[in-house]
């Protein structure tokens, strides 16, 4: 009897602690929101947090630019959410709190603009082209897109719902090739990982991803990629909490400085 009583008291304490934690959390987040808004005087001095939703392929270069931005504007903090452009677009239209959306395709950006969640017109800030990622040293001697259609090769593509997959399908269609992969991966990084882990022999990914993977994969350029160059649009979001800082971050991305970081990562200028 006493054991049961003691146990139930402990349960209550735990419940109480949990509720307190929840309260603290909600208090914390509402505090943040108000501190961002109730600061009209800081029109030239940028501060606070900027939340950027960006395509998975932008991870390396945007992380670099984020650090640069924080250094140039002390008191700011850039938070990134990298993922498949489509799921990011879905989160934004679903009400996820973000200031900037940098997408890997005009189609995914359109989801956001159609829903009325963007403020202003999206601008293309870089372009990306496809490349074949093979195992280090290219042991299967892959030299063209056609080589991927050969039997016995395990090839992964991005799902056609995400930009890298749509681009790959476009390149395949333009060259009238039929390719049956072993898997349609959920985003470009997942496709690349399968090659890095040597589970797949090749993947069709972005040039920038091959670049970022270093010597874990070997890149093979193919001429058909010219038929499937992806424009990357970026837009300020309507529900942005920190418009000033968000605009400053977008300016940095489009500046010569920002473009240098992006082209070094393998992107093309728009």
């Amino acid at each position: 009897m006493t054991r049961t009583a003691r146990r139930s008291r402990r349960t209550l304490q735990v419940t109480g602690a949990g509720a307190a934690a929840l309260l603290a959390l909600s208090a914390c987040s509402s505090g943040d929101a108000s501190s961002n808004k109730s600061d009209p005087s800081a029109s030239d001095k940028i501060s606070g947090e900027v939340t950027v939703f960006a395509a998975a392929s932008l991870k390396e270069s945007f992380t670099t630019l984020g650090k640069q931005f924080e250094k140039e504007h002390p008191g700011t903090k850039v938070t990134f959410s990298f993922g498949g452009s489509d799921s990011l677009a879905a989160s934004i239209t679903g009400g996820a709190p973000a200031d900037v959306f940098a997408s890997a395709s005009p189609k995914t950006m359109k989801i956001v603009t159609d829903a009325g969640d963007a403020s202003g017109t999206p601008a293309t800030f870089v372009r990306n082209e496809l490349e074949i990622a093979t195992l280090p040293g290219n042991p299967d001697k892959i030299g063209s897109l056609k080589d991927l259609t050969g039997s016995g090769l395990k090839v992964v593509l991005c799902d056609k719902e995400v930009p890298c997959g749509a681009a790959a399908q476009k390149a395949l269609a333009a060259s009238k090739l039929k390719l049956t992969p072993v898997s349609y991966e959920q985003d470009v990084k997942a496709a690349l990982t399968k090659v890095e882990l040597k589970e797949a022999d090749a993947a069709v990914v972005y040039k920038t991803d091959v670049h970022a993977a270093g010597d874990k994969v070997e890149g093979v350029e193919f001429p058909e990629s010219a038929d499937a160059i992806n424009d990357y649009p970026m837009a300020l979001l309507k529900d942005a909490q920190n418009t000033e800082a968000a605009k400053a971050f977008m300016a940095l991305v489009q500046s010569a400085e920002g473009q240098k970081v992006l082209t070094e990562a393998g992107f093309r200028k728009p």
């Binding site: 992964v156 799902d159 992969p181 072993v182 898997s183 349609y184 991966e185 959920q186 997942a190 399968k194």
Partner: peptide, 11 residues
């Protein structure tokens, strides 16, 4: 999705 990937009808 990590181990078996994603292919309609197979995984």
């Amino acid at each position: 999705i990590t181990f078996a990937g994603n292919f309609p009808g197979r995984t």
